[in-house]
Design a protein around this nucleic acid. Structure first.
Length: 789
DNA sequence: GGACGTTCTGTTTTT
DNA sequence: CAGAACGTCC
């Protein structure tokens, strides 16, 4: 289980074990003049505008090292990043420069640092230190519950939309009351046909507080409230953090911006580093204006521009600059490089997504041979996580080891969330999402109806469900005798676990819980491949907890408590599995472009450059979104050191449907001179025969057509007996030929559709006729296969 | 009341 | 495709 390892490594790696390598005075010599000036300007506000590959992280880490070397107490430094990965890398690099004292610098993501502050001072806002952090799934689930309770139409009030509204409000420091009092907002909601969004927000806010839970946005929002309403706390942290550094400043939202501003207000020793051209998180509230307006906030600011790129070849830098030049909003700067011209950018055009995978796997194989490089020198970047499937398949076939970053996080898996829900409930009895998640899992005879009764009583008396379960009579909970007994047993079990929380270490307690609740048994009974994998995941989690428990000895932190609640604090924000151990892995990296920010690879493939995929369908609606999409492409390109390769597929399976598409506009926005004129085309007959769509497709979203079809995955095929029979009589063609097959044409046929699909081998041309032509659910079980050639 | 099977729906990026 | 919702049966 790939995802599991990463979790393990996080706890295994003794990151502060490094010995100091160099004196800071020595390392300063390694910097260019601008970088060195940025490092040395320790006092007062500083902004570093750092182009891609210009040594931004270097400046940040050296700056911290420089501060420490000049006698600044590590406890007085705060360094904020966006991802765990970035924080980790910075920690490692600083530790390498200055040795173990680096551990005392507060370095972490905005969310983790503020969570830490809230755990220590959140009691002033009425939160216990063991409050639960709700991830997006928890939040959505709570919203769905509320929508149901309010008897609203869940199709109108989808969890995504509602959470999006709430989230952006929180990021602009608007609470539910403010939301409902704001005419502009409520009018907009009414206009959108969702007049009750504010009501949902109010209930959502109330419930979270009742559950003693915070969602991701709350970690920022509540920190703001804390610093606003409790001056003594503000002073405490202002006094503590003499020096503040912020990475990726262009991605801060208003909420983050304000916290940083407040913390820095005392002595203004604030250094922000960023690149407006790499702002790719506007969708979650990032405000590019924060970096554009930094000068207004701090008129005394010293500005440094790092414009020399040390990473990429001239071709890549120039191509990337050309893309971004299409944008209107940007800080003027010229990113340049002294590196060699390098390869021109090849564009691979394929007919299907699986062929795209094959071509890239083949190219990796070849390049690895020719250039004598390792797997880890390659990265494949895509716009959406779903695109990884076809690539994985191709890499597996070529025996190229790979690692996927992101996607469905280990912690989002059902079996993991289930076990974690037990932990959550034990630590925080108010956590109702957790409670109802596991009250009847594994099944113990407390069904939906009983759960609803509990829920209703809790609301009637404005207490938590746990309170009702503890005193059923007091709240008039009426259940059948047997259900009442089972509920009592459940309560006793949870309470029993809770009493062990600080008696047993995390591993022993976790193991005890997994066994006692029947989770282990239930999962072990399922012998399907998925079931086995679920069981393994559970084991993986337990292993990770074991590592966590044993870590004390390894890192000389014997005094640190190793109880389950401490583990859960760490885990809550570890939502991306970014804990690559570079030393023992040699794998090709697969990830989204977003996840690739801050990384670099000698060889980078950017795949799925299709109109409506990259740039994404929704980004085509507004100029701002399209500009962000361009910046995203800019980020992707500039990850490459030696060579960037682009690719797109003309047809692709998406949500079980075959999708037709054309090359992305970005392919045409790159200046011809940087593109490899020997564009690599696939060699299949169809690609040669199919004329390239040359029409003006700017803004033409209709080119992205769903033409029906079904993914012939194994489970569907078992049911598709009709198809099997048909194919069985044609030894020349197998059902498997359909998927890698090339779409030749499609046409209406009565109420159905006919797809002409060409198989891979010689004489493998087939027609699939769909009997059922409903727009959706075109499953192969309704299909019949005919050899037409 | 609860287990189990079928149908429907939403589909970007992340802390 | 996966998860939720709905329907059916014991």
């Amino acid at each position: 289980m790939i995802l599991g390892f990463t979790l393990l490594q996080f706890y295994r790696k003794p990151i502060f074990a490094h010995k100091k390598e160099l004196k800071v005075t020595q390392i300063l010599d390694q910097l260019n003049e601008e970088q060195r000036s940025a490092v040395k300007a320790t006092e007062g506000p500083v902004m570093v505008v750092a182009g891609a590959g210009s040594g931004k992280t270097r400046v940040l880490t050296y700056r911290i090292a420089y501060l420490l070397e000049n006698g600044v107490d590590p406890f007085n430094i705060l360094a904020l990043t966006f991802t765990n990965k970035a924080a980790r890398e910075m920690k490692e690099r600083v530790a390498r420069l200055v040795g173990p004292e680096a551990r005392n610098v507060w370095m972490g993501t905005f969310h983790s640092v503020f969570a830490r502050i809230l755990r220590s001072d959140g009691h002033l806002l009425g939160y216990p230190s063991n409050f639960t952090i709700y991830d997006t799934d928890d939040s959505k689930s709570l919203i769905r519950t509320i929508v149901k309770e309010l008897q609203l139409d869940k199709k109108v009030y989808t969890a995504n939309t509602v959470l999006g509204r709430i989230s952006s409000s929180k990021n602009n420091l608007i609470n539910a009351q403010g939301y409902n009092n704001d005419d502009e907002i409520t009018t907009a909601d009414k206009a959108a046909g969702r007049p009750f969004t504010g009501k949902i927000y109010a209930l959502y806010e109330k419930r979270l507080f009742q559950y003693k839970a915070m969602d991701f946005d709350d970690l920022l929002f509540k920190t703001n409230i804390l610093l606003r309403d409790f001056p003594e706390i503000l002073h405490k942290y202002q006094h503590k953090f003499h020096y503040i550094l912020v990475d990726e400043y262009q991605d801060t939202n208003y909420s983050q911006y304000l916290i940083v501003k407040k913390l820095a207000a005392n002595n203004e020793n604030i250094c922000v580093v960023g690149d407006d051209a790499q702002s790719i998180y506007a969708f979650r509230g990032a405000n590019i204006a924060n970096i554009l307006n930094f000068k207004h906030d701090y008129p005394e600011v010293k500005l440094f521009k790092l414009e020399q790129n040390y990473r990429s070849t001239q071709n890549i830098v120039n191509a990337a600059n050309g893309i971004i030049a299409n944008n209107k909003e940007q800080i003027q700067k010229v990113v340049w490089t002294e590196n060699s011209t390098g390869h021109k950018i090849p564009v691979i055009r394929t007919s299907t997504d699986s062929e795209e995978g094959r071509m890239i796997a083949g190219d990796i194989f070849e390049t690895r041979m020719n250039e004598h490089c390792a797997n880890k020198d390659f990265a494949i970047l895509y716009r959406t996580n779903a695109q990884s499937r076809a690539l994985e398949e191709a890499l597996r076939k070529q025996n190229i080891p790979y690692r996927i970053y992101g996607g469905l996080s280990f912690y989002q898996r059902k079996e993991i969330k289930d076990l974690l829900a037990y932990f959550r409930l034990i630590i925080n009895h108010n956590d109702e999402e957790a409670l109802f998640r596991i009250i009847n899992f594994p099944a113990r005879g407390i069904g939906k109806t009983s759960q609803q009764k509990i829920s209703i009583k809790a609301q009637e008396h404005d207490v938590t469900a746990w309170e009702v379960i503890n005193h059923p009579h007091q709240y008039g909970l009426e259940l059948g005798a047997s259900v009442a007994t089972r509920l009592h047993q459940f309560k006793t079990m949870i309470a029993g676990f809770a009493s062990q929380l600080h008696k047993k270490n995390a591993y022993d307690l976790a193991k005890h819980i997994a066994a006692t609740t029947g989770m282990i048994r239930t999962l072990n009974e399922d012998k399907t491949p998925e079931g086995i994998s679920r069981f393994e995941n559970l084991e993986e989690l337990l292993n990770a907890i074991n590592e966590f428990t044993n870590k004390a000895a390894a890192e000389g932190e014997e005094d640190k408590p190793r109880s389950l609640d401490i583990f859960m604090q760490d885990v809550a924000l570890l939502t991306d599995q970014d804990n690559e151990d570079k030393n023992d892995t040699d794998k090709v990296s697969l990830m989204t472009v977003h996840a690739a920010k801050g990384l670099e690879f000698p060889f980078v493939y950017i795949v799925g450059l299709e109109e409506n995929l990259f740039p994404s369908m929704q980004s085509l609606n507004t100029r701002a979104d399209l500009e962000e999409e361009r910046r995203l492409f800019y980020v992707a390109l500039t990850r490459a050191e030696k060579k960037a390769t682009l690719s797109y597929a003309e047809t692709r399976y998406k949500w079980g449907n075959l999708i037709m598409s054309e090359g992305s506009r970005f392919l045409e926005e790159i200046n011809e001179e940087y593109i490899d004129s020997n564009r690599m085309y696939n060699t299949s007959a169809s690609a040669k025969n199919t004329p390239r769509h040359q029409g003006d497709r700017r803004g033409d979203t209709s080119s992205y057509k769903k033409i029906g079809g079904g993914t012939p995955d194994s489970s569907k095929f078992k049911k598709a007996s009709a198809l099997k029979k048909d194919t069985a009589s044609y030894p020349d063609i197998s059902a498997d030929d359909i998927r890698p097959g090339v779409l030749v044409s499609h046409q209406r046929f009565g109420s159905g559709k006919v797809l002409h699909i060409e198989g891979e081998g010689p004489n493998k041309k087939a027609t699939i006729f769909f009997k059922d032509a409903g727009e959706k659910n075109l499953l192969l079980k309704f299909a019949r296969l005919k050899i037409i050639k």
